[in-house]
Amino acid sequence: MSVIQDAFIWLNDPLNWTLPDGIIARTREHLWITLLAVALACAVGWPIGVLLGHYGRGGAALVTLANVSRAVPTVALLTIFPLTAIGFGERAIVLALAVFAVPPLLANAYLGIREVDPQVKEAALGMGLSGRQLLTRVELPLAVPYLASGFRTAAVQVIATATLAAFVNGGGLGMIISRGFGLGLASGGGQVLAGGLIVAVLCLIAEGLLALGERAVTPRHLRAPGRMSEGRASMTM
């Protein structure tokens, strides 16, 4: 039988879904790891990006940091962190994935604040708003679509990358793929393909749901095609 047929048979076996290490349990692990990593990245990336954007400083350094961090292989962090005081287990995996998720969150937060119309900010200051009030009442609300865009990018990237957690026996859907490789491609090729398909479908679902959420928080006049994607691209030039 072909690998595609093997994958179809493997996916249609109820035991592969319901066992303690089956698809349902591994999907829960995968989403939990993703949630923790993205939440940690948001706690770090958003405040830094917002403050840098508010004060108008660090733009060049931010772009450099974002580009350099993308060059660091996540699998390297997954193997290095367990050898440090962080140790093995969920903490090392979540931290490595969070490092990977910070750049798009930070860059889009910075861009969202910097894209606020200067005339709007001048009008707010003219009405007597302090710098803090300007940030919380004007800049942040207008930057929400960019924050949502960064969150969407980071979340989908982490869902796809979290499969690498299997390299350190960290759980998630990557375990299905790694066990398939352990059986050899002749016997486990179908399982490898099935695991890859599950991750791909999960990414597509997340992308679709988060795209709807991003559209919901974006004002109508900012929904012009390509507007925000062009902004994101400018941060990596």
Rank of each mutant, 00 (worst) to 15 (best):
V44E: 05
V44A: 07
G45R: 02
G45L: 03
G45K: 01
G45F: 02
G45Y: 02
W46L: 07
P47A: 05
I48Y: 00
I48N: 00
I48C: 02
G49W: 00
G49Q: 03
G49L: 03
V50G: 03
V50A: 05
L51C: 06
L52K: 03
G53F: 00
G53K: 01
G53L: 01
H54Q: 07
G56M: 00
G56V: 01
R57P: 07
R57V: 15
G58L: 02
G58Y: 00
G59E: 05
A60E: 15
A61C: 15
A61E: 07
A61F: 13
L62W: 04
L62Y: 05
V63L: 14
V63K: 13
V63M: 14
V63E: 11
T64H: 11
T64M: 15
T64G: 13
L65W: 13
L65H: 07
L65K: 14
L65E: 06
A66P: 02
A66H: 05
A66T: 08
N67L: 15
V68E: 15
S69I: 10
A71Q: 09
A71P: 06
A71E: 10
A71M: 10
V72Q: 10
V72E: 06
V72H: 05
V75M: 09
V75P: 05
V75F: 08
L77E: 07
L78N: 04
L78W: 08
F81Y: 11
F81K: 05
P82F: 13
L83W: 15
